[in-house]
């Protein structure tokens, strides 16, 4: 029982580790010759990773019968939002350099930014409705709303695919993971309906 209580803070600290490493690298000026690019890629990739990790919790619970997995689902999802926010802030601060008028143009004219931004809006909506009282208040529509997480994941992979120039390996990797998780969910609900 005591061990159980330790798991949550442990997951929290682990999830914060990539961010701490980034902060350390910023302080040491150890981001290479093109730090903005490095920060953008790193924060974006962690946002996608956490989204996929959060998505994997329910299937893992079903497969292992360990309820522990779903107890951390919300926190992991919020970490995906956290890293996506960092990613967006890096873009705003260091790429657009707060040229606010350019935001609309970039979002409208560059498809990869459009899909990335939509994915971010979804994560915001899911983040706002993640507290327990919101779950209660929204009732049945909460579940429907939170199915959008798959849309966010697919858009995230598309966003990545569109910035790759020559080797689409990473997009294939994350795309297969999302497809696998989505496939499992479809298969599971199909089985549930049949029985």
């Amino acid at each position: 029982m005591q061990m159980r209580k330790l798991i949550k803070p442990l997951v929290f600290v682990l999830a914060l580790l990539p961010f701490s490493v980034l902060v350390l690298r910023i302080l040491q000026n150890n981001l290479g010759p093109d730090p903005v690019q490095e920060l953008s890629l790193d924060t974006g990739e962690w946002a996608l990773r956490f989204l996929i990790i959060a998505l994997a919790m329910t299937p893992l619970r079903r497969i292992t019968n360990q309820i522990e997995f779903t107890r951390h689902r919300r926190m992991l999802g919020l970490f995906a939002l956290f890293y996506a926010t960092t990613h967006l802030l890096v873009w705003l601060m260091f790429v657009l350099e707060f040229r606010w008028f350019a935001i609309a143009e970039e979002i409208l004219e560059r498809p990869y930014i459009t899909v990335g931004f939509i994915a971010y809006l979804i994560l915001i909506a899911l983040g706002i409705t993640s507290p327990k009282f919101m779950v209660r208040r929204l009732g049945k529509s909460w579940k429907r709303l939170h199915k959008l997480v798959y849309v966010a994941a697919i858009l995230g992979v598309l966003h990545l695919l569109w910035i790759l120039r020559l080797d689409i390996g990473p997009a294939v990797f994350y795309g297969s993971l999302v497809a696998l998780l989505l496939g499992y969910r479809a298969w599971f609900s199909f089985q549930a309906r049949r029985s």
């Binding site: 981001l31 093109d34 730090p35 903005v36 260091f94 560059r110």
Partner: peptide, 21 residues
């Protein structure tokens, strides 16, 4: 370029807080 602008460039090396665009 269809995916990004070409009117400015990042002269490397940069540091995060002295970015020469």
């Amino acid at each position: 370029h269809p995916r990004w602008r070409q009117d400015t460039e990042r002269r490397l090396p940069q540091t995060l807080f002295s970015r020469s665009r």
